[in-house]
Deep mutational scan, measured.
Amino acid sequence: MSIQHFRVALIPFFAAFCLPVFAHPETLVKVKDAEDQLGARVGYIELDLNSGKILESFRPEERFPMMSTFKVLLCGAVLSRVDAGQEQLGRRIHYSQNDLVEYSPVTEKHLTDGMTVRELCSAAITMSDNTAANLLLTTIGGPKELTAFLHNMGDHVTRLDRWEPELNEAIPNDERDTTMPAAMATTLRKLLTGELLTLASRQQLIDWMEADKVAGPLLRSALPAGWFIADKSGAGERGSRGIIAALGPDGKPSRIVVIYTTGSQATMDERNRQIAEIGASLIKHW
């Protein structure tokens, strides 16, 4: 067993022997301040990774656009098919120029040779490549099948209805392509620590998230040296922004954090800054 596999296998073990965790309302004060600064709703939840206990939450059962955070769930569904012998990570998928959609920095470079399922998941999570996500959605049967996968996990809230990039439209009061912070946090925890996926697939999923290259201005910008984070960000229309993450000190994750916002007129930089400040408060009061 590799060191990384050992780390993920012992996530519940280490967490069980940690000192009790206590909620700190100071972080919620910052979440509410972010709402004021952005002029928009902000949803927040913080779960203990081992027990699933909610440590703090704000608007945990209000719907927010998922945006690209759905790509972690998508690759979880792909990995479940791999575990069941219905898919192979090494299978190569070929596609054409007509398949390319807006923001496809990886797939646009491989029109000639195609990409493997493993490479597509890596591109979808680490670079948020939209064509990679659409190609992977095709392998599982489309958005409705991802929703069905989530329902089978016990998540009857999260739903995907459309493809990239239309799913980022974020129309107010439109339930399409949305989740709730509580539902997303619980589902992410199941994917990373539950028995739904094999140990190898859980490790692969967290490795992809740990290698995320496009979430630097968010929670990662607030992390002290030595902290662990595996995350996936999302951005959408109407001032929408979000991030889902597993993080913790001492090089291992111990909490799940989900943050979503929508309806702001603020710039992307300002949305990023507010999420980073929430992260800084979380870490300060850990």
Rank of each mutant, 00 (worst) to 15 (best):
M1E: 01
M1G: 00
S2H: 15
Q4K: 12
Q4Y: 13
V8R: 12
A9P: 14
A9N: 09
L10S: 10
P12M: 14
F13H: 06
F17T: 12
F17I: 11
C18F: 06
V21R: 06
V21A: 15
F22S: 12
F22D: 07
H24T: 15
H24Y: 09
H24G: 14
P25G: 08
P25M: 10
T27M: 06
L28H: 12
K32D: 05
K32F: 08
K32C: 09
D33H: 15
D33N: 14
A34Q: 09
D36I: 14
R41V: 09
V42H: 02
G43N: 00
G43E: 00
I45F: 14
E46V: 09
E46R: 04
L47R: 03
L49I: 13
L49Q: 05
S51N: 12
S51L: 05
G52K: 06
G52N: 08
G52R: 05
K53Y: 13
K53D: 10
L55A: 06
E56L: 08
S57Q: 12
F58K: 07
R59Y: 04
R59C: 04
E62L: 07
R63C: 07
P65H: 04
P65M: 02
M66F: 09
M67G: 13
S68Y: 00
S68D: 00
T69C: 05
F70I: 06
K71I: 00
V72N: 01
A77V: 11
V78I: 09
V78C: 05
V78G: 01
L79Q: 03
L79H: 01
L79Y: 02
S80N: 12
R81V: 06
Q86G: 11
Q86R: 12
E87L: 11
E87Q: 08
E87F: 08
L89E: 06
G90W: 11
R91E: 06
R92V: 15
R92A: 09
I93R: 03
I93H: 05
I93L: 12
H94D: 11
H94N: 13
Q97F: 15
N98Y: 14
P105A: 06
T107Y: 01
T107P: 01
E108F: 08
E108G: 12
E108A: 09
E108W: 08
H110C: 08
L111Y: 10
T112A: 13
T112Q: 15
D113W: 07
G114L: 04
M115T: 05
M115Y: 03
M115Q: 07
V117C: 04
V117F: 04
R118S: 15
L120I: 06
C121V: 04
A123H: 03
A124H: 00
S128D: 00
D129V: 00
N130Y: 05
T131W: 02
A133E: 00
A133N: 02
N134A: 04
L137F: 09
T138I: 11
I140H: 04
I140Q: 06
G141D: 07
G142S: 06
G142E: 05
E145Q: 12
E145F: 10
E145S: 12
E145Y: 10
T147S: 11
F149V: 09
F149T: 08
L150D: 01
M153I: 13
G154P: 04
H156Q: 13
T158K: 00
R159T: 09
R159K: 13
R159P: 00
L160A: 11
D161N: 08
R162I: 02
E164Y: 05
P165G: 06
L167C: 11
L167K: 02
I171F: 13
I171S: 14
P172V: 12
P172G: 10
R176M: 10
R176T: 07
D177F: 01
D177Y: 01
T179M: 01
P181S: 05
A182L: 15
A182F: 15
A182S: 13
A183R: 09
M184V: 09
A185I: 03
T186K: 13
T186C: 15
T187Y: 03
L188N: 02
L188R: 00
R189Y: 15
R189P: 02
K190N: 14
L191C: 07
L191G: 02
G194F: 09
G194C: 11
G194R: 09
E195C: 08
E195I: 03
L196K: 15
L197D: 03
L197N: 05
T198P: 07
T198G: 11
L199P: 15
L199T: 11
A200L: 10
S201G: 10
S201Q: 06
Q203D: 11
Q203N: 13
Q204R: 10
Q204S: 12
L205Y: 02
I206G: 09
I206Q: 12
D207Y: 14
W208V: 02
E210G: 10
E210Y: 10
D212W: 02
K213D: 03
V214G: 06
V214I: 07
V214P: 05
A215D: 02
A215M: 03
A215S: 09
G216V: 07
P217Q: 13
R220L: 03
A225P: 15
I229R: 01
A230T: 02
A230Y: 03
D231P: 04
K232C: 01
K232R: 06
S233P: 05
G234L: 01
A235W: 01
A235K: 02
G236D: 04
E237F: 09
E237P: 15
G239I: 01
G239W: 01
G239M: 02
R241E: 03
R241Q: 04
G242A: 10
G242C: 06
I244F: 03
A246G: 06
L247R: 01
G248V: 01
K252N: 11
P253Y: 03
S254I: 10
R255F: 02
V258T: 07
I259H: 00
T261V: 13
T262N: 10
S264I: 04
Q265W: 10
Q265P: 11
A266W: 06
E270W: 07
R271Q: 10
R271Y: 03
N272L: 02
N272S: 05
N272Q: 05
N272Y: 02
R273Y: 12
Q274G: 09
I275H: 01
I275E: 01
E277T: 13
E277N: 11
E277Y: 08
G279A: 11
S281K: 14
S281Y: 15
L282D: 01
I283D: 01
I283H: 05
K284G: 10
K284Q: 13
